[in-house]
Amino acid sequence: MRDSLKQLGFGIARRPRGEPVLVDGFLAPCWDWKAAEQLFSAKHRRTGHNIQVMSDLRGRLRAVGRPLPGARHDSHACTASGMETTVGRHPGLGDKGCQGCGLLTLHKKPLHRPLTVVEKDCNRAHSAIRSAVERCIGHLKNWKVLAEDYRGPLDRFPENFDTTVQLELLRTWAPS
């Protein structure tokens, strides 16, 4: 079934050229295996896989990166999961964790001065636009396999994750 879903061609190929994309990451929790210490995310204080997600401005899922260990930072995960090449030369917006990945990110507070009014307004507008990718992640987390601790064999997680993503793409697909 998974292969037949992939043949339908959902995802990044259906995105119009030049349309901006939104990128963000989340932790898909899994059971704590003693043999897989790299899955522990100190930021979230739990084990899981770092998943990078790309959506359009309407919050529809467009692509996902390869699952990586939860101990990886978002900037590394964006590059290592293949999301940076998937975005390509299209305009993309990311959060502060994606700095250095070729995406437009928020202004960081510089040393010895507060953010200017213009920088604060830019950050506010940036966050308002990026709320769509947060909604997209929320829809992905509605699938039980991504919301609760994954307890299956670790080598099967990518296959289960891929099937879940294809089902979400099928659920949100609307013919034009």
Rank of each mutant, 00 (worst) to 15 (best):
M1I: 03
M1A: 15
D3T: 07
D3Q: 06
S4G: 08
L5P: 04
Q7F: 11
L8N: 03
G11M: 03
G11I: 01
G11R: 12
I12N: 06
A13L: 05
R15C: 09
R15I: 07
R15N: 07
R15V: 06
P16C: 01
G18D: 03
E19C: 11
P20A: 12
L22Q: 13
L22Y: 06
V23F: 09
D24S: 06
G25V: 08
P29C: 10
C30S: 07
C30Q: 06
C30E: 05
D32A: 13
W33I: 02
A36G: 12
Q38V: 09
Q38K: 15
Q38L: 14
L39T: 04
F40H: 03
A42C: 03
A42L: 07
T47L: 02
G48R: 08
G48I: 01
N50P: 05
N50F: 00
I51S: 04
I51G: 08
I51M: 10
Q52W: 14
Q52A: 11
V53L: 13
V53R: 01
M54Y: 14
S55K: 04
D56G: 03
G59Y: 04
R60W: 13
R60D: 14
L61W: 14
L61K: 09
V64R: 13
G65C: 00
G65R: 07
P67L: 12
L68W: 00
G70K: 05
R72N: 12
H73D: 01
D74P: 11
D74I: 14
A77T: 12
T79F: 10
S81P: 05
G82E: 04
M83D: 08
E84K: 14
T86Q: 11
V87Q: 03
V87E: 05
G88R: 04
G88M: 05
H90P: 01
P91K: 13
K96Q: 07
G97N: 12
Q99L: 13
Q99I: 04
C101S: 09
L103N: 03
T105F: 11
T105G: 08
T105H: 03
H107E: 00
P110T: 01
R113I: 02
P114V: 01
T116R: 10
V117E: 05
V118L: 13
E119R: 15
D121N: 08
D121R: 12
D121P: 06
R124F: 02
R124M: 00
A125G: 02
H126A: 02
H126I: 03
S127E: 04
S127V: 03
I129T: 13
I129Q: 08
R130D: 11
S131F: 00
A132E: 06
E134N: 00
E134A: 02
R135M: 10
R135L: 10
I137R: 09
I137A: 10
H139R: 11
H139N: 13
H139A: 12
K141E: 15
W143F: 15
K144H: 15
K144T: 11
K144N: 15
V145T: 14
L146W: 02
E148H: 10
E148G: 08
Y150N: 05
Y150L: 07
G152Q: 11
D155C: 10
F157R: 09
F157H: 13
F157Q: 02
P158M: 08
E159Y: 15
E159R: 14
N160P: 03
F161V: 05
F161R: 00
T163E: 15
T163N: 13
V165T: 09
E168S: 13
L169T: 05
R171S: 14
T172S: 02
A174W: 14
A174F: 14
A174E: 15
